[in-house]
Amino acid sequence: MNLQKILEKHAFQKDHLIEILIDLQNEKTYKFVTEEEVSLIADALKVPVSHVCGVMSFYTLLSFDERGKYIIQVCKDVPCYLNDDFNVLTTIEKALDISCGDTSKDQFFTLEQTACLGCCDEAPAMRINNKVYTKLTKAKVLRILEEYKEGILC
C-alpha cells in the first residue's frame, strides 16, 4: 500500500495523522518515515509541515531514521527503574553490542527507550514491535533476544 492509498484509507482526515504515520511506517521493513513523506502528508492533509514534525518527534514509536526489523523499547518510567535488581537497558546494550538509540549492523534490532507501557504492576517491562514482555530478569531478557535471533519468536 503506498502513501496515496493510506491517505485515501483515512479519507485525508487531519485527525488521523498518527494512524497515517503508523500505517506508512509499518509498510516498510525498517519502520521509518522520510522527510519527503512528511512534506507530502502535510500538503495532502493541509496542515503545516511543522505540525507533522511535532507529532513525529513526540511519539517514540515514530521515527525519521531507518530502524531494525525488531524494535526493542525499554520502559524508562519509575516502577521499571525501582524494580530492577539488574538493568534491562544495559543488559541489552551489552548483549547486542549497541547503545540505546542505535540499530545493530545487520539491521535486525533497534534499541530504544519508551515512556510507560502500562505494565507497572509487572515491572520491569519492554516491548518488541507490538509484543510486551514483563517481569523481566536478566536470563529472561537474554533468552528472548536469542529466540528472536533464532526465529522462534517473531
Partner: peptide, 16 residues
C-alpha cells in the same frame, strides 16, 4: 515554529 520532542528534550524549532 513548533514544539519538537517531549519532556526535558523538547525544543522549539522549525520543521526538520
Amino acid at each position: 515554529l513548533e514544539r519538537m520532542g517531549r519532556s526535558n528534550e523538547m525544543m522549539i524549532a522549525p520543521a526538520f
